[in-house]
Design a protein around this nucleic acid. Structure first.
Lengths: 122, 122
DNA sequence: GCTATATTTCGTCGCTCGACGAAATGAAAG
DNA sequence: CTTTCATTTCGTCGAGCGACGAAATATAGC
């Protein structure tokens, strides 16, 4: 029951749904998610830790960058299928379409220049 | 997006999941749900109004009793399927099994005697 | 070993949420 | 039409959540 509740509570937040949708096309660095979601690094990090606790995402550290991706094996039987259903419903929403467009722009940039823009106040 | 969020937020609460599971076998009166969930009438009523706002349940008034049942048509395409997946995962949990047992006892009683026990403090 | 930098942790603030009791509503029974 | 009773609405309180900035952590490059 707790596992199921963790998953549902993790899903019951628009920002986290946006992050999950963004990860559909493959792993992303935290700084790319910060740029996409337009929130403070600490806030984004907290959201990602909630998603990871629910086993909806997995993470991998590479040098100074931390990459997050959708989980491959889920904690509850339903989680994967629920996620697929949610994605189908979320795909056509304006917010997610905007995010996809925004994400393409973000990913076209190198991570060094992205981080420079994010952290050094230019 | 708001529709999807309403559904997910409605599902992200253990009490409301228990209520939904209880309604799988057919409609129930508010007083039966009060007895099952062991919460104050106002609290249960509030939970049910949240489920109704999300279009996960429908209601029907019959005399002095208000009956709630699972919705037949859902607001979002995913909702019905998500619910089915959740039920499959919830069914084997201890909490839901206890509720099923408890519910059989509650439903074996007439609503008059049930309400008498609930409201008149005997 | 420092320094710079990407991310997380911690503490705090304001808001939402779930709980309740009291009061309001509305249908039934007398 | 008044009373009774099932349910909902309202107001409030405490707990949890999402936001942030500051400080801590960890890795890369000098």
């Amino acid at each position: 029951m707790q596992d199921i509740m963790d998953v549902l509570k993790a899903l019951a937040d628009e920002t986290r749904l946006r992050a999950l949708c963004a990860l559909r096309n493959g792993e992303l660095c935290v700084c790319q998610l910060i740029a996409l979601l337009d929130l403070s690094p600490s806030t984004v990090s907290k959201h990602l830790s909630i998603l990871r606790s629910a086993r909806l995402v997995e993470s991998r550290k590479d040098g100074r960058w931390m990459y997050y991706r959708l989980a491959t094996r889920f904690r509850t039987r339903a989680a994967g299928k629920v996620l697929a259903l949610l994605f189908a419903d979320l795909d056509p929403t304006a917010r997610i379409r905007d995010d996809q467009k925004h994400l393409r722009k973000i990913c076209s940039e190198s991570m060094e220049t992205l981080c420079r823009r994010l952290f050094c106040k230019l």
